[in-house]
């Protein structure tokens, strides 16, 4: 099998749609319905039925059907492309599923959505990588942030809670002024000033020594290397027992699937370090929809 090209898959889907009789039937049906609505609208607003209203309705109806077809092509092409792309790497792809909610940040936000699940082994570590949408607020105040999440399980629990989140001066000022902390845990300051500039590290109260033992100088250097490689990624790392989630603020696009490989490569030293710390046996990858508390 050769590496699939998204443009080819998309063009193939478009050709398939244009060749299908059903599609043109729907376009004609859309035009007829639009014409009917235009007629009814004109009839309701005066005694004379103006031809332009019927034609405008017809055009709008046909256009809606064409756009719906185009959206369908995009969706199908995306799914087919990612399935083939994942199969090339002996991974599995699912377009939809429930988001993981087993770490504090993955649980946060008013609503959560998930899509584009990739699961498999990389190289020996079982993982699930997916697109996580965190939604805060509603209506016009709704804020949606897209994260690419790498989720995997360790052989044994490493620590009750470790959160490494991007340092936000605004959030810290808010915490100082109103005593409100966005994270769950107690803040821990490590010896690196550079790490302190970029990340806020927290763990459970009373577990500071355990965290310090875990975050050795070489672990800190790995985190800093990641930060330097992806300075605008708003990277987060979370460990809760055996569950590990790495997040970056990125949107997955079939036009640039290499982003997945690039991120996996960047995450790799940190993931290897964690699996070594936890023990050599990594658990098999969780399948989509499995072991996810709702």
């Amino acid at each position: 099998m050769s590496e699939p090209e998204y443009r080819e898959v998309e063009a193939e889907e478009r050709r398939h749609l244009l060749r299908s009789f059903g599609y043109w039937d729907i376009v004609v049906l859309g035009a007829l319905m639009g014409a009917g609505l235009g007629f009814l609208y004109g009839h309701g607003h005066g005694s004379r039925v103006e031809a332009w209203r019927v034609f405008a309705g017809m055009a709008i109806g046909a256009l809606c059907a064409l756009v719906a077809g185009w959206v369908k092509v995009q969706g199908r092409a995306r799914e087919r492309f990612f399935t083939r792309w994942a199969a090339e790497r002996q991974w599995h792809y699912e377009a939809a599923g429930r988001p993981f909610e087993d770490t504090p940040f993955l649980q946060s936000g008013d609503k959560r959505r998930a899509s584009d699940f990739f699961s498999g082994f990389w190289p020996e570590l079982g993982f699930v990588l997916y697109q996580h949408k965190r939604i805060v607020g509603s209506g016009r105040d709704e804020q949606v942030t897209n994260y690419l999440v790498l989720h995997f399980s360790l052989g044994r629990p490493l620590i009750d809670l470790l959160q490494i989140s991007p340092r936000s001066r605004a959030a810290e000022l808010e915490a100082k002024l109103f005593g409100r902390l966005s994270g769950l845990g107690e803040r821990i300051e490590l010896e690196s000033a550079e790490l302190d500039q970029h990340f806020r590290i927290s763990g459970l109260r009373g577990q500071e020594d355990e965290l310090r033992r875990l975050l050795t100088p070489s672990a800190i250097v790995r985190l800093l290397d990641f930060q330097r490689a992806l300075p605008d990624g708003n990277a987060r790392f979370e460990i809760v027992g055996t569950n590990v989630a790495f997040l970056v603020e990125k949107t997955l696009s079939p036009k640039r699937p290499q982003l997945i490989v690039e991120l996996l490569e960047l995450w790799r030293p940190i993931a290897v370090w964690l699996t070594e710390e936890a023990g050599p046996e990594a658990q098999p990858p969780a399948t989509v929809g499995e072991s996810r508390p709702s």
Partner: peptide
């Protein structure tokens, strides 16, 4: 040796900032 190298990187980074 890895830990020495990492600790040195962190120390020199702090010195640079300071």
């Amino acid at each position: 040796e890895d830990e020495v190298a990492a600790a040195r990187t962190i120390y020199n980074g702090n010195v640079r900032i300071y």
